[in-house]
């Protein structure tokens, strides 16, 4: 088991980590609107559209629905942004990390489970049927993607013999995990889109329920929730790098640059896929999650553990 030496940087670097995360989130939003503008033949509204939307939402007034549970609504909306920050805390940028937890993988899992609560709270708090349906839809999706995601997270942990994120990255110096655990990687990405309420898993915010959880949000409330979604997507993409894509390994460039390049690449793929895939309807995906994804993830873990035992 190769030991990698991660340097835990002083807590003050959290400011930089936050800025990097926000930049990645902005990149995701910008790429998405650029792709939209191209597909729709829109005259304006390319790469800078997220900046304009931010300006618009900062100018817009907030609103509350009659007898809404405003506290829960705001906790749900703002919690998305906070959660994504907590998630990136354990992701090493090359040799540096903010928190080198001995249970880093479990920490990631814990934060992604928080999204269940947040999306439901935002949907419930609005006191609106559209929001309510959206919030419950998200839980139905969660029931389907969460267990496969957990088993997908376990696969690199088995191979590295550790729940430390840095160890998982270090265990791939010869062969990236994505090469010999592709099923786990794909299911991991499914999970990332799931907890980011993104693309195929955006049924909670779907057009068929007039925006669902987002239906009643305006102004800065909407801004933080949307920003949180993009930030979660970025955080999930970044986490796939130490877990499956060899961390900072790569020629010529320094390690932190490789982490950044790989993160941007995964993020771009996730953003691009949104426009291609239909929304997975919760009532149908429930079966897919349990009958296809879960056994696939368990089988992947079996293969990984057999390989590990056989080699070691």
């Amino acid at each position: 088991m190769p030991e990698t030496v991660l340097t835990t940087v002083p807590a003050g670097w959290a400011a930089l980590a936050g800025i990097v995360l926000c930049t990645l989130a902005f990149f995701a939003a910008a790429l998405d609107s650029a792709l939209s503008a191209r597909a729709e033949g829109a005259g304006r509204g390319g790469w800078l559209a997220p900046a304009w939307s931010t300006a618009r939402l900062l100018r817009q007034r907030r609103r509350t629905v009659v007898a809404a549970d405003t506290l829960l609504l705001r906790v749900g909306a703002a919690g998305m942004l906070v959660g994504s920050f907590l998630m990136v805390a354990v992701i090493p940028l090359g040799r540096w990390t903010l928190a080198d937890l001995d249970v880093g993988v479990v920490w990631f899992n814990t934060v992604d489970v928080m999204v269940w609560a947040l999306v439901w709270l935002a949907g419930w708090g609005a006191n609106s049927v559209h929001g309510l349906v959206g919030g419950y839809r998200f839980l139905a999706h969660g029931l389907a993607y969460e267990l496969p995601l957990m088993f997908a997270l376990v696969a690199p942990a088995i191979a590295a013999g550790s729940l430390r994120v840095g160890d998982a990255a270090g265990a791939q110096d010869r062969l990236w995990f994505v090469v010999w655990m592709p099923v786990a990687f794909v299911i991991f990405l499914v999970g990332v889109t799931g907890f980011s309420v993104w693309g195929p898993f955006a049924a909670a915010l779907g057009a068929d329920v007039a925006g669902g959880v987002l239906a009643e949000l305006s102004g800065v409330d909407r801004l933080v929730m949307q920003a949180g979604r993009y930030a979660f997507l970025a955080a999930g993409a970044a986490f796939s790098v130490p877990l499956f894509l060899g961390g900072g390994a790569g020629p010529f460039l320094p390690e932190w640059a490789w982490v950044a390049v790989k993160t941007v690449a995964v993020l771009a793929v996730l953003v691009w896929l949104r426009r291609k895939l239909p929304v997975f309807r919760p009532d149908r995906f429930l079966e897919i999650g349990w009958v296809v994804l879960l056994p696939a993830a368990v089988a992947q873990d079996l293969v990984v553990s057999l390989v590990v035992v056989w080699k070691g």
């Binding site: 959290a14 900062l58 907590l86 805390a89 903010l98 920490w107 800065v220």
Partner: peptide, 25 residues
């Protein structure tokens, strides 16, 4: 590091809400 990140996130949210107070109609 995690506590620092949480503080950063809370700061970001508070900052956005404060900015909104100034800029919203």
């Amino acid at each position: 590091g995690i506590v620092a990140m949480a503080l950063m996130a809370v700061f970001a949210v508070v900052f956005l809400y404060a900015l909104h107070r100034l800029t919203a109609v």
